[in-house]
Design a binder for these strands. Structure first.
Lengths: 324, 324
DNA sequence: GGGCTTATTCTCAAGGCTAGAATAACGCCA
DNA sequence: TGGCGTTATTCTAGCCTTGAGAATAAGCCC
């Protein structure tokens, strides 16, 4: 019976072609700002991506090839994010063929000048301005709150209304509850459903009930969704695995590490507690060097203790979020 | 330029068909044992699965249809796990077509008797006997340790040797370090690379240097790998999201909840501390009812407070692992 | 009623986290 | 050269959480 299914499967596959797109969110942090590698085309940005081809031995190797040919950037750390496959959302309407897109997250040490004409490092908060709480609450959240309020108010049933209220509360929080940096995708999806991002209008599925869309640059196809997934994953992961070090140079002062984490998480952390965590877990070791580039008292230069990767004791560090 | 890539893509997709398999790990916990829904065929088990077809609107809906037709089981909670695509590992050798397999995790409240002849609920520790530490350390780990020791010893270079030692230490731990329940996939992959599971031999890639394979039932294609991914994901997730309740009946005594968590995690937890966590977070509420079915003093029956899903405060509970 | 079993509550110490104060070391400038 | 501003680095007191086990409660069975 199994065998029968299989062969039915083969036939179908031939009749209805499926193509698979590999997309990469390539992240670096430069001058304390989180950057993502974008392909600029006709006034809309895209992620580096390309179709899976027969000669690619693995999905990941196919991805590496595409990124390198499109951006000249060689990838180090790579991790699969998610496979998107809603028909009607992931492709630029018109075609009938199904396109799956498999999103990947890649981390590279420093943003070197992009190697090709239309590949460029861009601050990721350009696409998600409401996600950057490093200096206080972004003012754009007032507009978002207004738009979402409208959306909640226009729910078809009271039950739906309640559900919408709850979703807004959970993702964007309230004036009282502290900001949660992780549900980046949930927030974007909410804006999409409420028609508050241009992509929703473009896909022709959700119109804005508020009559406006929210600032934040859109991207090609579902690329902004993939980017949101990447940011969310990274924000979660830095808290329990020492992945930040993939973004750091060989040696660095502790404050640089802190600023990098803050850039990713979009929140400030408490300096003394941050160092205690980092040092307490033996994540770094002294190099003996110092730097005066930071101004003020010279800072020790440390380096990642890569042995921790082999020790298995790596809990990663949770963020000692600074209240004020 | 983007457009050019696209159309090249379309052509290729037609020439080299890609087919996509949707596979589900459907989990239930019955009588304190973790069960997975398996399709039994020719002496080898498989996960419910089937190809993605054009009429499936989303990947997830395609999956639901396949599981229901193959097993009569209706799915509730469903979550995407990972997309596997190594050519040569995921398909029963011979065919040249590329097959991607997208794995899903599904949770259902109770293992009802399977609805079709060859669908059956099976204890997942049948496939991973070394993962069940509820009564002490599984004896099979001695054999595994021996096999892996051999594998480490036969590393081509001293550097590789060191790396292999470290991987074994990190995944299976040592006599001293406490067992870590989460790296289920890493452990399986290690056994695969060392040729200690039948799948490795079958794929013709890694022969056992130890001259034997380890107990634990193999599965069709890469299904055991998908199962390992599912167990790992679930073990991680129960610690920070209240997903266990998807597996529970409407009302239950707290010990039942504890036993369910233990079944999934494969370790025992400290009873008083477990209740403190669960109650302290307001995850459950009293029903007023009691049950005497547990023997001894009658137990309060509680129910999941589903409001917590709308509160956003859900940290989930970490496991208060019982030392002894 | 005594013994057995499981449920439920408490307690106490150890460890970790929060928040802010205190101290150190450099450059700059009067 | 001493004061000031800046950043680095170290400490500390208080609070909260966690780990482990003891103590108590409430049924059943004989």
């Amino acid at each position: 019976m199994r065998a029968v299914q299989r062969s039915a499967h083969e036939e179908k596959a031939v009749q209805h072609a499926i193509s698979v797109d590999l997309s990469a969110v390539v992240v670096a942090v430069t001058k304390d700002e989180p950057k993502v590698l974008a392909i600029r085309n006709n006034d809309i940005d895209a992620l580096p991506s390309g179709p899976l081809e027969p000669q690619h031995r693995t999905l990941e190797s196919g991805l590496r090839v595409w990124v390198e040919t499109q951006t000249r950037q060689v990838l180090g750390y790579v991790e699969q994010l998610y496979t998107f496959g809603d028909s009607g959302r992931s492709l630029a309407a018109g075609t009938n063929a199904r396109v799956l897109s498999i999103g990947y997250l890649a981390l590279v040490p420093e943003a070197q000048p992009a190697g090709t004409a239309n590949a460029e490092w861009r601050n990721w908060y350009r696409y998600f301005p409401w996600e950057d709480w490093r200096d206080d609450r972004p003012p754009i959240l007032d507009r978002i709150a207004a738009g979402l309020k409208e959306w909640c108010a226009t729910a078809p049933t009271p039950a739906q209304r309640k559900l919408r209220d709850a979703r807004v509360r959970m993702t964007f929080g309230t004036r009282k509850t502290p900001w949660n940096d992780e549900p980046v995708l949930e927030r974007y999806e909410l804006l999409y459903e409420a028609g508050l991002v241009p992509e929703a209008q473009r896909d022709g599925r959700h119109a804005s009930v508020a009559g406006f869309v929210v600032e934040g640059e859109p991207m090609l196809a579902d690329h902004r969704r993939i980017l949101a997934t990447a940011i969310a994953r990274l924000r979660g992961k830095i808290k329990y695995r020492p992945v930040v070090f993939e973004l750091m140079p060989e040696t660095f002062p502790l404050l640089h590490l802190q600023r990098t984490v803050e850039a990713l998480a979009g929140v400030r952390v408490h300096k003394p507690n941050f160092r205690r965590l980092v040092e307490g877990q033996g994540l770094v070791e002294d190099t003996g060097g110092v730097t005066t580039e930071t101004g003020g008292r010279p800072a020790r230069l440390v380096r990642f203790r890569s042995e921790v990767l082999l020790e298995g004791t790596t809990t990663g560090f949770r963020l000692p979020v600074a209240r004020k």
